[in-house]
Design a binder for these strands. Structure first.
Length: 105
DNA sequence: CGGCTGGCCCCAA
DNA sequence: CTTGGGGCCAGCC
């Protein structure tokens, strides 16, 4: 079965530098799947299989850690991101500072 | 095919 | 903050 996009998503997510974050929508666009942001989330969820994928660096458009409930703990994402130098505004990432545009790769 | 769900996104009220 | 509408696509039934 052709699940290219899964692999592509993983490759892109792995390219997100430490201390940076990206969004589902951006990944989708970077893969020319534009409006398939949900699919990206689906794929990332399946990516829990792959420890090499820093899924915690992917947030939604508002910088909210919407996927945190899918991690081993509730704090996993925030903790990990903070230890990488990402700053938070409440429960949201400062996208203005840390957003990484995967389309530029 | 259709219907439902999901780590989405956009807008409006 | 919440609700409502719209759209997109993958996976399962």
């Amino acid at each position: 079965m052709n699940k290219d996009y899964y692999e592509k998503i993983y490759e892109l997510v792995k390219k997100i530098p430490k201390g940076r974050v990206s969004t589902y929508g951006n990944i989708a666009e970077a893969l020319s799947m534009k409006s398939a942001a949900r699919t990206v989330g689906y794929a990332l969820n399946a990516a829990k299989n792959r420890p090499e994928i820093p899924c915690h660096r992917v947030v939604n458009r508002k910088g909210e850690l919407t996927g945190k409930h899918h991690f081993p703990d509730e704090h996993y994402m925030k903790d990990k991101l903070q230890s990488e130098g990402v700053t938070f505004d409440g429960e949201r990432v400062n996208l203005e500072k840390h957003f990484f545009d995967l389309r530029k790769l």
